[in-house]
Design a protein around this nucleic acid. Structure first.
Lengths: 308, 308
RNA sequence: AGACACCUUUUCCG
DNA sequence: CGGAAAAGGTGTCT
């Protein structure tokens, strides 16, 4: 305990880091770095040995982080080439210019490297994270059929989209048998359509006794059910873990009501990855969204009015 | 940007918070509180205005939290009776001892009460959650509020005090979410501290769009705003109605500057009347006032010199 | 910060 | 029509 404290005091206090005269953002960065440094050390210590004489609890989610997010736009081929620090400037050199080559970087060094060799690719991000280290995603591609499909299962694919988001949107549902449903609204969001696609699919399957394999490319929808996000929100009165209101409660409620009587597996599939049935849904949703004379999505309009 | 920095420097640097001699866990808590205060203020600022000259990113979800949970083990019947601060010690007195009576508490007072009367039960949870704690689900009994609290209101409690008045003083601010701020000076007055508590609370809430319910037990502060005393003094050049100078114009000016952008209700609560949040402020203010090495209240010293 | 989805613009190639 | 790249954004969650 005392040893930890002594180590903490080895850090120079903020006033020694030179931001008594705050002229530049760099000083601000040092202030933040100092605070994060202390919290980070405490966090590591508590995780390693959570119970010492004075028990202390410190909760820092892993996605706490800070970084300097200046962007450098390297234009290798354009009206004028070079490095620009704002997108409007860079866009002017590039937009409508045949054969333009450009890319953004977080450091000037990288941008210069790109200018010399336009095949240069991004290096690692310079973000500093405190808290639990993000789980390393080493495995490149997700395996195809590692999933056990039950015998006699009903295969359904769903997709939804909104042009402009928010904007006119549509949903598509395709069964392996070839049956399909679709619909759309003149103003809605992508996630509402993904959700509605699932609802329509399950409503069409009401009374089905065989197991159902429902495929969607939306993490929002799949996790909402498989990780029980939706049930947690409902229990808290449609509030998220941070206390702010969860979105689309009307649709989630409809979906939850459909679940008990069916044997469903929600399966996430990567979008635009060649799955023919997923592509079919996508096409269906898209073409519906582009149709004239679509009705209002009253649920979306209502939620929008409430938040405004 | 500069304004933010000036506000950050109003926080006493860590060396003023008394953890130069880290003998107890309480000092560690203050170190953490200091870091969280700075980060929280930066977070609010960035959220409000994410793009200034030096683009910077800081992500801290508000449910980051920390607390100090020292445990006291009261052994009423065992090999040796008394209070122990670690479970292995307490276990030795109790394990295999016929008819042992023991219980853990969070404060020494409660443990002592249990020793005298083993039927003593835990009082209301005294866990201090300071930081960005999730909103507490306090379903239960609210005091009969004759006041109409708006929906979604931010609840803030403030208190200030000076030992000896004038003398060393401190202020405390507690949000219903558990967040808290505190500070102190080596020579100041009770009203200056009450006033500063309110200022610190509102500065922390800069940019907040929800209605704010600010509770103080100082008639001076509440009436100063609700009955427009302060505005009247300012209009007359900081003179009271009888022509004599109004006190603490520096702080009143700071407070008036904060009002226009916020939707605040000033609510007077009776001090020391059992309101737990008010008590928490009181405690915070008092303990800060008793800390060694507090800085000067330059505003008070100046006004004293002028009048002398 | 990360993840998934949904888009808008520009360019290139079939 | 189909494929690719680059930049900008929103809708949602942890």
């Amino acid at each position: 305990m005392h040893k930890l404290f002594n180590r903490l005091f080895c850090l120079p206090p903020p006033c020694f880091l030179g931001y008594r005269a705050p002229e530049t953002g760099g000083n601000m960065l040092q202030l933040i770095r100092y605070c994060f440094n202390i919290l980070h050390r405490l966090h590591i210590y508590f995780k390693k040995q959570p119970n010492f004489d004075t028990q202390m609890f410190l909760y820092i989610p892993f996605f706490c982080s800070y970084s300097l997010t200046m962007k450098f736009y390297a234009v290798a081929r354009g009206r004028r080439t070079g490095i620009f620090t704002s997108w409007p400037d860079a866009e002017r050199q590039v937009k409508g210019f045949a054969g333009a080559r450009f890319k953004s970087f977080k450091t000037k060094q990288e941008a210069l490297a790109f200018l010399e060799d336009p095949s240069y690719t991004n290096s690692a991000s310079s973000t500093k994270n405190i808290g639990f280290a993000p789980p390393k995603k080493k495995s490149g591609h997700r395996q195809p059929a590692d999933y056990e499909y039950p015998e006699n299962a009903v295969m359904v694919y769903t997709d939804g989209g909104a042009i402009g988001n928010p904007g006119p949107g549509g949903y598509g549902v395709v069964f392996e048998t070839g049956e399909s449903f679709s619909g759309g609204f003149n103003l809605t969001t992508n996630n509402r359509m993904e959700l509605l696609a699932v609802i329509v699919a399950l409503e069409a399957l009401e009374g089905e006794t065989r197991p159902i394999c429902l495929h969607s490319d939306s993490r929002y929808v799949v996790n909402g059910i498989t990780k029980n996000w939706a049930k947690a929100w409902k229990r808290r009165g449609w509030k998220k873990s941070d206390g702010t209101p969860a979105m689309n409660p009307d649709l989630w409620q409809r979906l939850l009501d459909l679940l008990p009587d069916l044997d469903i597996r929600f399966i996430w599939v990567k979008g635009h990855a060649g799955n023919p049935l997923n592509e079919a849904c996508d096409h269906l949703a898209n073409s519906t969204a582009r149709m004239p004379g679509l009705p209002d999505d009253t649920g979306y309009l209502k939620s929008r009015k409430n938040s405004a």
